[in-house]
Amino acid sequence: MIKICDLKVSELFMFKEQSYPGRCLVAYKRHVNELFELSPEERALFMEDVARAAKAMSKAFNPNKVNYGAYSDKLAHLHFHLVPKYEGGHTWGSTFEMNPQKVYLTDAEYAEKISAISLQVNTSAMV
């Protein structure tokens, strides 16, 4: 993954494998394994970070839908996958694949996507 920025209580990363153009991950900064380990205030801030990142992705890449995944059987750290889905695109209408390992970008292409998300994250403060 490539770090994009810090959010309130999380970090936003670009997923290197880009079968889903714009796919990102929001990881909680403090080491916890489950949502229920957070206080109600921490959980609200984390979900605000997830929503802010999803909104930024949506504005930057205009997907038909953003899918959310909180899979972590083997990675003991709270995080959400944010997966933009496009009608007619990879796995449209079904569950996204975790690691299809099909599409990797050039450094310039990653920089372009990261710039688009960064711009939106910085202008998309949640109210």
Rank of each mutant, 00 (worst) to 15 (best):
S72A: 11
M57G: 10
E34A: 11
P40D: 13
T91Y: 04
E34G: 02
S10A: 11
V103H: 07
E97P: 01
Q120N: 12
M126V: 14
M126S: 12
D6G: 14
D49W: 15
K74W: 11
G88C: 08
K3L: 13
L38M: 07
M14K: 04
E34D: 09
G22F: 08
Y20G: 00
S19R: 03
R52P: 05
L105Q: 13
V66Q: 07
A111K: 15
E97F: 05
V26S: 10
M47Y: 12
L38R: 05
R43N: 13
N33S: 12
A51K: 15
V9T: 15
R30C: 08
C24V: 02
G93Y: 04
V121M: 14
P21L: 08
N99K: 10
G69A: 06
Y110M: 08
K113D: 04
L7M: 14
E112K: 15
A108Y: 08
P100L: 13
A60G: 02
K113E: 04
D49E: 10
S94N: 05
N67C: 13
Y110Q: 02
S115I: 06
R52E: 08
L78H: 00
S94G: 09
L35N: 01
M47I: 13
E97I: 15
H77G: 12
K8L: 11
A51G: 11
A53L: 13
L7Y: 05
